[in-house]
Nucleic acid binder design. Structure first.
Length: 1005
RNA sequence: GCCCAGAUGGCGAAAUUGGUAGACGCACUGCCUUCAGGUGGCAGCGUUCGUAAGGAUGUGCAAGUUCGAAUCUUGUUCUGGGCACCA
């Protein structure tokens, strides 16, 4: 933390230490960051390159639930495995700075930062977080002014002072950055627990397939929406990929539009407008006067949000989210049954499903109407799941001619469609253009839609029926989980008031539990530990009281039983690395000022919207509170691609007769050896629709295919099925199956019969033949048997080969399938490099002779290219450059220390072990990491001539060696004399000759 | 459904600013070294016509801009990723 050198902070996204250990996909980003760290160090920087573990999380808890092992134990074990694996690859992490989010000494500060969030509010005047204590002061003297917070529950100073303690706390809670309110969770009654979206498949729980429904529970949230604008603006100042920025922008989803109020009317008598059994919708032009029942105007209006107020005359119906509070109030008696049924259906569906299955159209008419304020039309109000309660006002005005979803809905329920865009609407699909001229649109007629937006908005505001409104798709981040393995909240509930612990009481350690099942009433496992939950705190005066900052004596309370989500610890870990052992503060200001922002952050795109947004928000809050000096944590983000697994398949052919379990064949497994057919036969069967039975019959001629079976049972009575089965990629060489290894992989494959590529049948101890397996690219995963363990490769080829091969696969950002085969090439390169220094027979061959110009040229071309490629993270081309360099030096028979020594320094970030070893063989003391990075001398690469490509009409025809100082006229003259050019000219003059110096020549004829 | 990214030999890929498409590596073929295998070395290797010289063609598909397009523009097809409690 103390250095005269410029600093450089290289950070990897820290891993969740899963039990499966590392596969070859994980180290990709780590290798890139390690190369860059070493490179920066050689370039004279003070480099911070730490590593740690995101060790709280659901999988460990799930595992605990199944096996009874404490998550702390399994986590500890998994971390040990991870570290062992990482160390084998030779990463230069500063393990002295390791952090673990589940370590009490770490989460002490996660809890502490949570308290800062709890004790802060967002001041909309300054767009900054401020302390709640300041807010209380202004409340006492000025009341709430509504320009300091976004909430609308306003009061005067007098009112504030007469509020009860509880009422005051409620007002404050509505403003805190970390706050608690009732929110919906996925509740699974059968499991008695709250489920993550990921734990729900097709609307039922992944475990056990039990129904899941929405349930309102008290939850903690972070008021990230207040930071929406700053999170958007901050994107302009950071170096993230465009797609990453785009994803964040979409997530935040800022849109500008209007909120409008519509009067609601309804008739009290039942079944007047609509037969509940019919899907037929009422039409807006059915005159109210034909109905004899009294018309009532509902007290509160329907508030909708729209980005297109210009389409107000095209509104044919309204859609309200099923959860909307108005639904129960406005539903007519006649529609009550239908609405209730619909609500029950919606309750069973997750939000993701509702959006994803937008194609299936569902909805229900409420029996109420909204009145269009401009033309008085009655607009039927429906509820439908495609409108979400959480976005906008939870209600929309539907314009079927302009919005595809509205259009589909109108078509489905036979709602008449008003066309306000003339020929732009074809009746077949909606058109969301803004370029059309409005028709059937009252005072907006004849206006271009994009101009009409502003005019309509102005009118709406003038009439006082609505106002401009900026909306965000992003919602406040849910911050509590009904789980065990996470940070406990430093909060005590007493009489409905959330009381924060004092900083001195942190960390609030996670208590030990014996069971990891849920607590009562949907609470987390912590609720089961009564002695932990019920608190009486000793105050200095010796009474079982607590003196809160607000001056209330607390007799007893109940701890918050939910825990923080996975992203809590990862939202600030980059700060802890700067000052990991400090027990006075989360990170000393001096340390964070010195290391400042993360210069290079490397990780996967999967964190685009979660982790990256949360950590950006936390950084902004800490900045606002003056605890750190910058409000964007990551200067540059590099996303590594995913390494996909290459799965291999064998094709098992199985008579379906066996599946029917004939009594005689109960023990078939012992008699019938599994039969596998090769890829070519599988394709043949599939492509030509061959009946697998016919195939088997034909093969049964061969000895060995369970002759007894085919003799005993007539094959035409039984069918057969072919199933592709994953086979461990590690026992397949390319696509060629290692038959022996396959037979040994599972007991039931011991006597497997393999119908091989050439048609020969392989049985145990039989002919040597070739079985080609099928191949497919999929996500790397244990269950698909396509994982490749880096340990095996490091053992076989060494860490340097492994590192360079991972880089050589392709650009870091690209996703690519793993193929171990090519690793030989990189290994050969390193051996070839070694032979520049040492001969297998002669031993040492390097010498101290003076380098020739040709050798220097090779070296300096390499210096230039390696530096350029490393700087732009093009590690794959850098590896190629090293190969070219070594090939050329070998061709030149160059064994000169003067050249090789510099090459080693260039190589050391990529292949640190061999570089260090050879560095010492050359007689150097100390680590090669302390060497001076060689500087590139352009003078050595200056050429006097160039081999120009000469094209005729853009097609390359020949090359010409020309002096570089030649200008156009001289070049033209020389080109015209060229034999091949003359041949193509056939005696004519060219139209023109294009000459780009140092590039090419093109003759146009 | 919405959003984003990508598509180049048998395979992974390169081409940094519109200027010699396929660098580098794998696989494959032939040869040298060896008793043999491995290692190491030399040569060939987009497709196609041709003994060769040489020609035609070629960066998912279709069109356009340009002396010149993998690269720019428009449309289109396919593939991968993300879309609020796995991490």
């Amino acid at each position: 933390n103390d250095s005269a050198k410029p600093k450089y902070y290289v950070l990897d996204m820290f891993p969740y230490p899963s039990g499966a250990g590392l596969h070859v996909g994980h180290p990709l980003g780590y290798i890139a960051s390690d190369i860059y760290s070493r490179y920066k160090r050689l370039k004279g920087f003070n480099v911070l390159h730490p590593m740690g573990f995101d060790s709280f999380g659901l999988p460990a808890e799930q595992y605990a639930l199944e096996t009874g092992q404490h998550p702390a134990t399994t986590t500890e074990k998994n971390i040990a495995t991870f570290k062992l694996q990482l160390d084998k690859i030779g990463f230069c992490y500063d393990w002295d700075r390791e952090v673990r989010t589940s370590d009490p000494q770490y989460y002490k500060w996660t809890q502490w930062i949570f308290l800062q969030l709890f004790n802060s509010y967002f001041d909309t005047k300054t767009n900054k977080a401020k302390l709640v204590t300041e807010l209380i002061k202004t409340f006492e003297t000025e009341g709430s002014t509504n320009n300091q917070q976004r909430t609308t529950d306003n009061f005067t100073a007098e009112q504030w002072n007469t509020f009860s303690k509880k009422e005051q706390e409620e007002m404050l809670m509505n403003r805190r950055l970390a706050f608690s309110k009732y929110g919906e969770v996925n509740w699974c009654e059968a499991l008695g627990t709250v489920l993550a979206n990921d734990e729900i498949v097709n609307g039922v729980s992944e475990r056990g397939g039990h129904p899941v429904e929405k349930k309102k529970m008290r939850q903690w949230y972070l008021r990230i929406t207040d930071y929406a604008d700053r999170l958007l603006e901050g994107l302009e100042t950071v170096d993230f990929s465009e797609s990453m920025k785009e994803m964040q922008k979409n997530w935040i989803g800022k849109s500008e539009g209007a909120e409008m109020d519509f009067k609601i009317v309804r008739r009290e008598s039942s079944g007047v407008n609509v037969d509940p059994a019919s899907k037929e919708a009422p039409t807006h032009d059915s005159p109210l006067t034909t109905h004899d029942s009294p018309l009532t105007i509902h007290a509160s209006p329907l508030r909708v949000y729209t980005t297109r107020p210009d389409t107000i005359f095209g509104v044919d119906f309204m859609v309200v989210a099923p959860e909307h509070e108005l639904v129960s109030q406005i539903t007519s008696a006649g529609q009550q049954v239908a609405i209730d049924e619909y609500l029950a259906y919606v309750k069973s569906r997750s939000e993701r499903e509702r959006l994803a299955e937008a194609k299936t159209i569902t909805g229900c008419f409420t029996g109420a109407y909204a009145i269009n304020p401009f033309d008085g039309r009655e607009i039927p109000i429906w509820i439908a799941e495609y409108v979400l309660a959480g976005y906008g006002t939870g209600a929309i005005m539907a314009v079927p001619c302009g919005d595809q979803r509205d259009f589909a809905f109108a078509k489905h329920f036979n709602i008449p469609i008003t066309n306000i865009i003339g020929a732009h609407y074809n009746g077949e699909e909606a058109n969301s253009t803004k370029e059309a001229v409005l028709e059937n649109s009252g005072f907006l007629n004849g206006l271009l839609m994009k101009d009409a937006i502003g005019i309509a908005l102005k009118k709406i505001e003038e009439l006082g029926i609505g106002k401009r409104k900026v909306n965000y798709r992003m919602r406040d981040a849910g911050f509590s989980r009904q789980r065990y393995w996470g940070e406990p909240f430093p909060i005590i509930w007493s009489d409905g008031i959330a009381i924060p612990l004092d900083a001195e009481e942190l960390p609030l350690e996670l208590p030990h539990v014996d069971k990891y099942g849920p607590g009562p009433d949907g609470e987390g496992p912590l609720a089961n530990i009564k002695e932990w939950v019920d608190v009486r705190r000793n105050t200095p005066d010796g009474v079982f009281n607590t003196n809160t900052p607000q001056g209330v004596f607390l007799q007893e309370g109940r701890r918050e039983t939910s825990t923080m989500p996975g992203y809590a610890g990862s939202s600030w870990y980059f700060l802890r690395y700067m000052d990991p052992h400090n027990n006075q503060t989360f990170c000393d200001r001096k340390a964070s000022d010195y290391w400042n922002q993360v210069d290079l952050y490397i990780g996967g795109t999967e964190h685009a919207v979660g982790h990256l947004l949360y950590s950006r928000m936390w950084t902004k809050v800490l900045f606002d509170l003056g605890l750190i000096g910058y409000d964007e944590p990551f200067k540059k983000l590099l996303n590594q691609g995913m390494i996909q697994g290459s799965s291999r398949f064998v094709y098992r052919i199985l008579p379906t007769y066996l599946i029917q379990r004939d009594a005689e064949l109960d023990n078939y497994e012992s008699k019938l050896d599994p039969i596998f057919i090769s890829k070519i036969q599988y394709d043949g069967i599939k492509d030509n629709n061959i009946d697998p039975v016919d195939f088997l019959l034909a093969r049964s001629e061969d000895e060995g295919i369970n002759k007894w079976f085919f003799e005993k049972y007539s094959m035409d009575k039984i069918g057969a099925a072919v199933t592709p089965i994953h086979v461990d990629v590690n026992i397949v060489n390319g696509v060629e199956l290692d038959i022996e290894a396959f037979r040994n992989s599972r007991p039931e494959y011991k006597n497997a019969i393999l119908v091989c590529e050439d048609g020969w049948v392989s049985h145990p101890g039989g002919k040597f033949t070739l079985y080609i397996s099928g191949a497919e690219t999929e996500k790397m995963s244990k269950s698909k048997f396509n994982t490749v363990n880096p340990d095996d490769l490091v053992l076989k080829y060494g860490a340097d080969t492994f590192r360079m091969y991972e880089m050589f696969l392709g650009p870091v950002e690209a996703s690519k399938p793993w193929d171990t085969k090519g690793i030989e090439g990189v290994h050969r390169f390193l051996r070839k490099l070694w032979r520049l220094f040492n001969d297998d027979i002669k031993g040492k061959v390097w010498n101290e002779d003076k380098a020739t110009d040709a050798e220097l040229k090779v070296l300096h071309r390499t210096i230039k290219k390696i530096e350029e490629d490393t700087e732009r993270f093009s590690f794959n081309t850098a590896v190629s450059t090293f190969m070219i360099c070594v090939n050329e030096l070998a061709d030149l028979k160059c064994h000169k220390k003067e050249i090789l020594e510099k090459l080693l320094i260039l190589l050391t970030p990529y292949a640190p072990h061999i570089a260090e070893e050879l560095w010492h063989q050359l007689g150097n003391e100390g680590s090669i990491l302390d060497a001076n990075y060689p500087s590139f001398n352009p003078a050595l690469l200056v050429e006097s001539t160039k081999e120009y490509p000469v094209s005729i009409n853009g097609k390359l025809r020949t090359n010409m060696q020309l002096a570089l100082n030649l200008e156009q006229p001289q070049v033209e003259e020389l080109v015209l004399q060229n034999e091949i050019v003359q041949k193509w000219l056939e005696g004519n003059q060219p139209k023109k000759i294009i000459f780009v110096k140092n590039k090419m020549i093109n003759v146009v004829i």
